[in-house]
């Protein structure tokens, strides 16, 4: 009785998804949003069952959703939707596995990551001090506007929008200022060396 009820529910759900997808093909935003939201738990469950690393599951699910979006015109409304959806899901999981294995093949596993270069390459305290002094000189050679832009975006790490709000300049103008400032600093540092 329960099994029959469950199978009826599933048939009803598949039929609903088929109709929603047909509406989505006609450009119905609400139907498409509902379709994608309803398939989301099914996709997550499927990927969870087939993928070992839980941290990758959401990336793969997003990849499947974008794949469904890009090939939604290949769904034939006269055919059942689940084989269509599950074929795309299986294909994208297989693609993710292939990408993952090729990435692993190009990686080297080390027990401890080196924190710095080997002794010969490590900078001495004197070198570091010289570099800092050269950067201070290069900064001092900039105009006030350029120096402020560099301090906000490169030293304090503000985004271009945040720095634009702070300085009152437009985003494009600020980008140009930073570009020119870096160019001037580079020239100053090259002169020193």
């Amino acid at each position: 009785m329960t099994s029959s009820g469950s199978s009826d529910d599933r048939a009803e759900r598949d039929e609903r998804w088929r109709l929603l997808m047909r509406l989505a093909q006609a450009g119905d935003t609400a139907a498409y949003s509902r379709f994608l939201s309803e398939i989301l738990p099914v996709l997550r469950g499927t990927v969870h069952r087939r993928w070992r690393s839980p941290q990758d599951v959401e990336d793969i699910v997003q990849d499947i959703l974008m794949s469904v979006h890009s090939v939604r015109h290949t769904f034939d409304p006269s055919r059942p939707i689940m084989p269509w959806l599950m074929t795309i899901t299986a294909r994208r999981i297989a693609d993710a596995a292939r990408r993952s294995s090729s990435r692993v093949a190009n990686e080297t596993t080390v027990e401890t990551m080196p924190e710095t270069f080997s002794g010969a390459d490590t900078k001495s305290t004197q070198d570091t001090s010289d570099d800092q002094e050269a950067i201070q000189i290069a900064l001092a050679s900039l105009s006030d506007g350029q120096r402020e832009a560099i301090q906000l975006m490169k030293l304090q790490g503000l985004s271009v929008q945040e720095a634009a709000e702070r300085t009152g300049k437009s985003v494009p103008a600020l980008k140009v200022t930073v570009h020119r400032a870096i160019k001037a600093m580079r020239a100053s540092l090259q002169r020193k060396t």
Partner: peptide
């Protein structure tokens, strides 16, 4: 990006398509 936000973004940009 959260998956729910991705769904909103995809739904926003859905356009009519001719089934193959």
């Amino acid at each position: 990006m959260r998956t729910e936000d991705l769904i909103d973004a995809l739904a926003d940009k859905v356009e009519p398509v001719e089934p193959l």
